[in-house]
Each structure stands twice: as C-alpha cells, then as structure tokens.
Design a protein around this nucleic acid. Sequence first.
DNA 1: TATGCCTGTTCAAACGGTTGCACAAACCCA
DNA 2: TGGGTTTGTGCAACCGTTTGAACAGGCATA
Lengths: 342, 342
Amino acid sequence: MVTIKDIARLAGVSPSTVSRVVSNHPRISPETSRKVKAIMEEQGYHPNVMAKSLVSKTTQTLGIMLPRPAEELFQNYFFGELLRGIVTQATRMNYDLLMTTATSSSDEVNTISRLVRGRRVDGVLLLGSKRDDPLIAFLSKEQFPFVLLGRSEAYPDAVMVDNNNVQVAYDATAHLIAQGHRRIGFVSGPPDLTLSHDRMVGYRQALEEHSLEMRGEWIVEGEFLQESGFRAMSQFMNMPERPTAIVVIDDNVAFGVLRGLSELGYRVPDDISIVSFNNIALSELASPPLTSVDIGTYQLGYTAVQSLLRVIGGEPLHQNPVIIPHRLIVRESSMYPTFKRS
Amino acid sequence: MVTIKDIARLAGVSPSTVSRVVSNHPRISPETSRKVKAIMEEQGYHPNVMAKSLVSKTTQTLGIMLPRPAEELFQNYFFGELLRGIVTQATRMNYDLLMTTATSSSDEVNTISRLVRGRRVDGVLLLGSKRDDPLIAFLSKEQFPFVLLGRSEAYPDAVMVDNNNVQVAYDATAHLIAQGHRRIGFVSGPPDLTLSHDRMVGYRQALEEHSLEMRGEWIVEGEFLQESGFRAMSQFMNMPERPTAIVVIDDNVAFGVLRGLSELGYRVPDDISIVSFNNIALSELASPPLTSVDIGTYQLGYTAVQSLLRVIGGEPLHQNPVIIPHRLIVRESSMYPTFKRS
DNA sequence: TATGCCTGTTCAAACGGTTGCACAAACCCA
DNA sequence: TGGGTTTGTGCAACCGTTTGAACAGGCATA
C-alpha cells in the first residue's frame, strides 16, 4: 500500500507538500507539483479515503436505507427505476452510495444509528415511510441530514420529495368515473405506509365529490406483490354487487389482478376496468396494456439526491416538500366505453 | 459528536480501556465493563467507523460495480432479484454495500481504482463481464479481492460465480428441437458480453448436434431492452424463410418480442414459439406465459457474496467457478405441438 | 520473604492523511 | 540597502481508534 509518505520520500518533499499538491493548493510551485504528480501516477497512488474523512469529517457517501421487508421492493420494477435516478445523480455529484437494510424491523433504528453515529455517511435517503416511522424520529432527533422519499405527517419539518399522492389517486379515480363507472373498488397496499394512505384518501375524495357509493368491501389491503392482486380478485368477483372498475395501488399488483381476472374468466376492460399507479415499463406490454399514472419515478430518485446534497451543504431549500408531477397514461385497460363502442 | 475520549473521561478510565470494553477484551473487570457500557448507552456512543478502519485496514464494506450502461440493467427485473440476493447475504454477514457506477466506460477503471487504492472497500463484486474486461485486468493485477458474476476466459484464475450458460442455452434450444422445430432463430444481447457469447455457443451446439441449419440471418444482436426484441421481430418476420421458433437472450427482451409479434399479427406459440432466459417473476404473467430458463438469480447474488467473503478472509474455495444450477420452465409460449393438438 | 505469575489498567505509538503556523528565500519598492 | 511582502515548503498537532508494551498491585508458591 503506497501512502503519502512514500510519495513524499520519493519526491524528496514533505507529506504536507504532497497533500497540497493533491488538493491543488495555490502556493505549490508548478515544478514541485509536476514532479510529485508524476511520482503519484507512477506509483498508482490514491489517498486513503478513511484517513481523509477522519480529518475532514466528511465521507462523500450517501446512505440509502432499504425499508423492511426489502423483498417486496426488489420485486418491483419501480425500485430499479428509482435507484437509477438515485445512482445517476449521486455519481454525477461524486458521491458514493451505501446500501443497508435491517435484518428485522426492530433492528432498523440500530442499523441506521450505526451509520449515523459511526459517521459513515454524510446523509441518509429514506425510501418510503411508514405513517409513524421510528427512523424519521431518530434522524430528526439526531439532526442528521436526511431526505424522505415520501411524506410524513408527524414530522412536517423533514425534507421530503414526493408525489401529491392524494391527487394522483384522485385523478385515476376521476378518470374511471368519467368513463361512466359508478361502482369502483380499490386494491391498496400496506395500510401503515403513507403512500397507501394518501392514495386511499384521493380515491375516497373522488368518490365523494361525485356522490358515489363507498363500500368497505370494495376496498382490499395487501402487499406490493402480484399475489395480493391475484387474491383480491377472488374476493371481489364473488360479491353479488361487484365493482365495474378497480383502482390498483401499483402496477405490479395490477399484473396479479389481470392474471386473477383472466383465470376467473373475466375480460379487461369489457367486464371490468383497471387503472393503476407508477407506470413501469411493462405496463404498456400487459394484456391489455395498463392505464397507469406515471409518477416520474426516475425524477423522484434524482431529485431526492439533489435535495439531500442541499441539506448536507446547508443550502436553503426552495420548497418543501418537493412535489414531482404526475401524469395519467390512458391505455386499453380502462377504455371501457370507447372500446365497447368501437 | 461523542468520542471514545468523552466516554473515557466520563467513566474515569483511559480511552484504551473503553476500546477494550467495546471489543470485549478478556482482561477487563466486569465492574469497569458495566460502568463504561452504561455511559456509552447513555451518551449514545458508536465508534467512528473511519477511525476504526484506518487502523484495522478493513472496512466491512463490499463494493459493487454497476456495469455500463447502468440504465439497461436497472430496467430489468433480473437486476432487482440479483441485488436482493447480494444485499441479503451481505447484511447477514454484517457487511455494507457500496454501489458505484462510472459516468463513462473510459472512467470505469478510474472509478474502481478510487475504491480499491483508496481502501474504501474490502472486496469488489463485478456484475457481468465483458469478454475482454479492463476491470478484471485491473483487479487481478492489484491482487485485490473480487468476485466475478459471470465468466472470464482471459483470467481463468479469477473467482467466478456463474451459470453454465452454454448448457443453459443448449437446453432451451434442445427443448424447441424436441418440440419439432427445425428453423430456430436467436435474439442475442451485446456480443461483447460473455453471457451473450456463451448462450450463443450453446444455441449453436444444439443446432449442430441435431444437424440443423444455422443461418446468419436468423441471429440478431441487440441490447437487453424490450426495444431490441421488438425490432428483431420486424427483421425476422419479413424473411421468406423465417424461423418457427426463437431463443431470446432475456425475458425482458422476450417481452419486446411478444409485443412485436402481436403487432405484426402473429400468434405465439401457434405461429412461432418462444423460449427465453432468466425466468423473472413476470414471465409467468406474459401472454402467453413465457417458457424460460430459471437461472437461480437470487442464489447467484447470494453465492457471489459468500465467495467474496471467502476470498477476503483468505479461505480456500471449494471450487471455481461455482456453477449455479438452472432449470427449464416450460410454459405456453413454446408448447407448439401439444398446444396445437389439444 | 523473595520470586514469579496473574489481573486490570494506562501509556504511547501508529494508522494516513490535513492544516495552522513558522520560517527561509526571493522579490519589490522606496 | 533595508524593510516589508510574497512564495514555497516543512514542522507538528490533530482526527478517533487500536494495540503492544509497561506497570502496579494482589496472590500463590517455594
């Protein structure tokens, strides 16, 4: 392992001089700089990152905490796209990414506290938030830089990047109503997630504003898995008065819904219409192609990193939360009247 | 920031004693240990990771280098599942994961050299390998612990975790032959990837052994993207003598193939049969469900971490490369004769 | 009672850098 | 020509830990 001292010795200067060459200190003579740089190059010297951050108290690393259970997340295209946004922006800004996950949810705070108090990272990105999230509580109390990809009611001062998920769900539901549907169901995600909650609120709001019936049995809560969608369908379709359209919390779940319906012998959108959220690449390739709300997943990740770096740098935020715009992409799965007419 | 010195002062002992309490040194009296631990707890003390690794020369961190272009990878379910295997095993073994990617392919070696020479990580996981990969060359030369998720001909001593991709493709192709197909095409990935190369070899081997015709125009190379599959179809289906079955490099690409065929008005498997690789969760939900080779993606990631930790620990490897078993999952997309008969 | 061995703790150096301060040499200008 | 300023470099302290060596006191053994 070649260190700064080795370079110094070989160049016949002191370690401090080498250090200053590396950091382009203005008072280094061009000649020395050239000589030292040549030797560094020749020896393949890179400053030891640990030593550096020990004195600079900065790591050029962002922590990303995968929520529990991580399994669910990984099986979702959504995650890959989000991660892409995160990695792209972090790399561009010369930051590395440290990924951790806890082995159990009771271990979550411990895991992050290791990162934070061990000064392992300069800031933390929280992917998704529970409605009462101990991680947010911890990071707030520690006054450690973090950004929440999502929303927290309990900590309105937390820096957040999110969609307006109430509006997102409202738009999706309103679209179905505009298509003539009057009985609309909702396949939701885990109820303790802010995301599920917000979308549920939007769905309810849309029904209410149009004075449509809201039935408890038309709402099913599950996971972000295809299975959940699949199971929800056997529940729904056995009802005497079943919905004619369904809002689904996530495309992945919607794939399960489609499969469930096809196994039960129903056709989409003729027998029942579907809209879902996130608009992953495959939505377009489903049969039928899924109507879905594009929530700007890549931009979500990208922006979150941007905000986090701002927090770390102590720069002011223009606004909080940052709301990423969404857009309803209408495809065949919800083209009920039009489709039937044609 | 509370340091070991603060704890020492509050407990009325020396920093070395605190350090020894943390590491459960046998010569610490139970009483001291109790006292110090109480104070650590009260102060929320965690050892500074940087300082620790500066002296221990170990980081408890694994680097994972995302290949260029990262975009392609992220759009693939395959990646999420692989990452899940990696994260799970790393977390279980108390290692963190550092993700980097290069901004350009010329920057790849630089990026990894920063990690390696900066002693930022204890070992590196290389996801996928090009046939002549400068990263492998670099890591080999540096004698830095790394594991290749894939295969390298140029560096047979590198530690590798891989499928037998020749056999994988052979099995898939042989299955089509067994179904009665005689004209079989291949939609491949980027030719410089070992993966594409190996699967191409397996495909060729199967054809050869059954004395089937091998036509250059029946082979198309593309990216791991749906678009590639889509485009390949317009090429194939315009040929006077087109294949009756196609082997596709990846499920994601196969989705594009399916869409292409459906837009051109062909039915699968009646008009043309499809088999592909990786067996991502959605293969089952495609229409028709995709025949695909399950390559044990999760296990691939999981095992790679295991191997890497073994290399880092200087433990002997039982075998190299470690070959993860695969299994052909036959679904409707290749059920040509059966399907037609029924 | 002197000797050696535990036991529990402290001391100080080391890990590989950064940086404020000191200082010598060169330069400038009156 | 002498004072002040600038320029280029070195010294030494410091970041927060670990760890080998030293050491003081207690205990057992001969």
